[in-house]
Design a protein around this nucleic acid. Structure first.
Lengths: 144, 144
DNA sequence: TAAATAAAAGATAAAAAAGTCTTTTATTTA
DNA sequence: TAAATAAAAGACTTTTTTATCTTTTATTTA
């Protein structure tokens, strides 16, 4: 499944926040949850964590909410995935072997290395902000 | 993490069984569990399932055990993964969107399509039996 | 045919992931 | 400064995954 559910929500959320930020507004948890079709309190937890790690900004109180104002082009999806799922996806053995290494490879070592590399480079190349316009134009979706 | 723990064990187990089968012998659950470093009863369950689905053969009673005699070159790792984890890895949306499709794509639709394709083709190209020799020669490992 | 062997099956148990609910804290604005 | 707002934090529940233990069934061999 590549990503945990938590991570799927996280990616959808940062893309959503970025999109709204590009229109100059903050978004609250309720709007985010509705906008990406996720459980409200669950995505709240995830965003608390991302906020602590500096991947999103948050402001409490009336007219508060989340933004990625100015940072959505600095942050890429590799950053988000690492923050949520850690880097096992990029470094771990495909067969789950703890001691798998160049010297002691699993039978699929080289194959998985190529796959992991492709995943990593794909995510690294994708900034959170680069989807704003196509989302605005209805060319792609982050709901359901 | 790409595969579930169950699936990791399953792949390691079929490769192990294939290797021993190539030497003309059946292997019991205890030997398999020790050989791939997995919980004994857990891998037993998994193999019961693979046995029902025809991916491995099993024989009860004294001198019984599991084999892939004659079939380890017909079965590839895509078959194994599909049997255990289903085909969500090959067909599902990377962001977990149920309705993601060509007409209603998620922002990463094409990127994930390429990744899934690579994973699928890699697994399809790998027959269970093709690792026997390098395992025998100590060039790769399926333990720890 | 009885004893031994080994997988199959079923019932639990433990751990992790996903999801929910309540209280607290910070901030704004009237 | 009081009321309203919204995120932060903490406690808890549910579901899924992973793992274990016990009993049953099939097979072999002495």
């Amino acid at each position: 499944m590549i990503f945990s559910k938590t991570c799927e929500y996280a990616i959808r959320a940062v893309i959503f926040i970025s999109q709204k930020s590009s229109e100059g507004r903050r978004v609250g948890i309720k709007e985010i949850a509705a906008g990406i079709d996720s459980p409200e309190h669950f995505i709240a937890k995830i965003l608390q964590d991302l906020s602590r790690k500096g991947l999103v900004q948050s402001v409490k109180g009336p007219n508060g909410g989340f933004t990625m104002d100015g940072i959505s082009n600095q942050i890429n999806l590799e950053d988000v995935v690492k923050a949520v799922d850690g880097d096992a996806l990029f470094t771990g053995c495909g067969l789950g072997l703890k001691n798998c290494s160049e010297k002691q490879p699993c039978p699929l070592h080289d194959e998985f290395k190529a796959i992991r590399k492709k995943i990593q480079l794909t995510l690294r190349a994708a900034t959170v902000g680069e989807f704003n316009e196509e989302l605005d134009r209805g060319l792609s979706y982050i709901r359901r």
